[in-house]
Design a protein around this nucleic acid. Sequence first.
DNA 1: ACAAAATGTAAAGTTTGTTTTACATTTTAA
DNA 2: TTAAAATGTAAAACAAACTTTACATTTTGT
Lengths: 66, 66
Amino acid sequence: MKNIVKVERARMNLTQADLAEKVSVSRQTIIAIESAKYVPSAILVLKIAKVVGKPVEELFELEDGD
Amino acid sequence: MKNIVKVERARMNLTQADLAEKVSVSRQTIIAIESAKYVPSAILVLKIAKVVGKPVEELFELEDGD
DNA sequence: ACAAAATGTAAAGTTTGTTTTACATTTTAA
DNA sequence: TTAAAATGTAAAACAAACTTTACATTTTGT
């Protein structure tokens, strides 16, 4: 799975810490997600999508092998 | 978070085992999701949404306290 | 040029998602 | 009515998502 969270965060002019606070996770979690270090939970992607104002499918995309 | 996976599965006339196979997880995982026993990963909700043919946000809904 | 802010890396510990296995119960089909 | 199919429950084990803490590096703003 890949995502455009970093791009959207920049578009909204938010720091990682800002976004982390808005979705109630640690900054490290945002870093991990943006760098695809691990797969976030459904709750988290729904929250991020809500903050960004776009559907989950637009931010996160399945890849072969997922 | 709550979901309507069970309803959509019934609408498509799939068993839990059918859906489990389509999204490459165990049947127990489908049971756990339908009964909100635990929160699925982003990859899994994307896969289920794809099989069902509806956006993630339509199948899964954030609740207070999430 | 320099300090503050932002981002990045790492690690250890905790929590949770998922698996497998087994059996019980309910529902469905004939 | 009965057997097969589907669903449900439980538990143990494992992998991974997440946290906190700390420090390093890069970027930004003045």
